[in-house]
Simulated assay, not measured.
Amino acid sequence: MALPLPSRDDLRALLEWQLAMGVDVALEEAPQDRFAADAARAQRAAQPAPQAAPQAPQRAPAVVSPAALLATPDESVSAAREAAASAATLDELRQILEGFEGCALKATASRTVFADGAPGARLMLVGEAPGREEDLSGLPFVGRSGQLLDRMLAAIGLDRGSVYIANVIPWRPPGNRTPTPQETETCLPFIRRQIELCDPEILVALGGAAAQSLFRARDGILKLRGKWLDYDVAGRPAKAMATLHPAYLLRSPAQKKLAWRDLKAIRRALEGAAPPG
């Protein structure tokens, strides 16, 4: 005699009982050894994870020639002066820098950060050295400091298309450390030649380090800033000034009032020194 089929209520009651007893896996037609499955999972977890294939470096590191490594500091500076003086145009100077091996910073940098803006602009701005963002992009002042610099220029009606921007040192120091005096002296002939070839009417050093290098000054930036100096550009005096670096202003926003005074002085100088018609 066939047994009667369970009702819907009977099936619901059976399911609720199973859930109450902790049943969380549906039964299958073929039996499975759950203990064996657990042992296999434990064995797989104990095995070391496969090693990921090493990623290829983005670029081959630059190699400094043995002659450059053995050169004395005076020889490195002399080589830089000779190389910089041989450049007749800004493009030639860029190419010379790309091939120069007398500064060890080039071996650790991703690329040479030469300049941005308009060659031959009336206003030239010079910082100290590139940071991480600049090293990656190949352009000066593109990080947070560069964004603030753009706003500073816009406040006096200028932009990157109307100025020329460079650094004393064209290669990023490792970890954004401060360049050594020797590194600065080796790179100085290049930025001086870059200034000569750009031939600006007004030269602005951004920050104390750039001002001390370009103007051979010893005072700190708070004493140097806002004062007009004469800077020799291939025998012609150009107006020069030091102002606060945008990175300093990001750390000390209260000092923006001083930078604003400098910016207004630069704007007045540009308006009073119209280019020859």
Score class of each variant (00 low, 15 high):
residue 6 P to C: 06
residue 7 S to E: 12
residue 8 R to K: 12
residue 8 R to W: 07
residue 13 A to I: 00
residue 15 L to C: 08
residue 19 L to E: 06
residue 19 L to N: 07
residue 21 M to G: 03
residue 22 G to W: 13
residue 26 A to Y: 10
residue 32 Q to E: 11
residue 34 R to Y: 09
residue 35 F to V: 13
residue 35 F to P: 00
residue 38 D to C: 13
residue 39 A to W: 14
residue 41 R to I: 05
residue 42 A to C: 10
residue 43 Q to A: 15
residue 45 A to F: 12
residue 46 A to H: 08
residue 51 Q to C: 04
residue 55 Q to N: 04
residue 57 P to G: 07
residue 58 Q to T: 07
residue 61 P to C: 06
residue 67 A to H: 05
residue 71 A to N: 05
residue 72 T to C: 04
residue 72 T to E: 06
residue 72 T to R: 08
residue 80 A to L: 01
residue 80 A to F: 00
residue 81 R to Q: 12
residue 83 A to I: 00
residue 93 L to W: 04
residue 93 L to S: 00
residue 93 L to C: 08
residue 95 Q to C: 04
residue 96 I to V: 15
residue 100 F to P: 01
residue 102 G to Q: 03
residue 106 K to N: 05
residue 108 T to D: 07
residue 109 A to W: 11
residue 112 T to C: 15
residue 114 F to Q: 10
residue 114 F to S: 02
residue 116 D to K: 15
residue 121 A to T: 02
residue 124 M to E: 02
residue 125 L to E: 00
residue 127 G to K: 05
residue 129 A to K: 03
residue 134 E to Q: 12
residue 135 D to P: 01
residue 135 D to C: 05
residue 135 D to K: 08
residue 135 D to T: 02
residue 136 L to Y: 07
residue 136 L to E: 11
residue 138 G to Q: 08
residue 139 L to K: 15
residue 140 P to I: 10
residue 144 R to L: 14
residue 146 G to D: 00
residue 147 Q to M: 11
residue 149 L to N: 00
residue 149 L to R: 02
residue 151 R to H: 06
residue 153 L to D: 00
residue 154 A to M: 09
residue 158 L to V: 06
residue 158 L to S: 04
residue 161 G to F: 11
residue 163 V to K: 06
residue 163 V to F: 13
residue 164 Y to A: 13
residue 164 Y to S: 01
residue 165 I to H: 00
residue 166 A to F: 10
residue 166 A to N: 06
residue 168 V to A: 12
residue 171 W to T: 00
residue 173 P to Q: 02
residue 178 T to R: 13
residue 180 T to G: 05
residue 180 T to N: 02
residue 182 Q to P: 01
residue 187 C to F: 11
residue 191 I to W: 08
residue 201 E to V: 06
residue 201 E to N: 05
residue 202 I to E: 01
residue 202 I to V: 15
residue 202 I to Y: 02
residue 205 A to M: 15
residue 216 R to M: 11
residue 216 R to E: 08
residue 217 A to L: 10
residue 218 R to W: 09
residue 218 R to V: 03
residue 219 D to Q: 15
residue 226 G to V: 02
residue 229 L to F: 11
residue 230 D to L: 14
residue 239 K to Y: 06
residue 243 T to L: 15
residue 246 P to T: 01
residue 248 Y to A: 09
residue 249 L to M: 09
residue 249 L to C: 03
residue 257 K to H: 09
residue 257 K to M: 14
residue 259 A to E: 01
residue 259 A to N: 03
residue 261 R to K: 13
residue 264 K to C: 09
residue 265 A to S: 13
residue 270 L to K: 04
residue 275 P to Y: 08
residue 277 G to N: 06
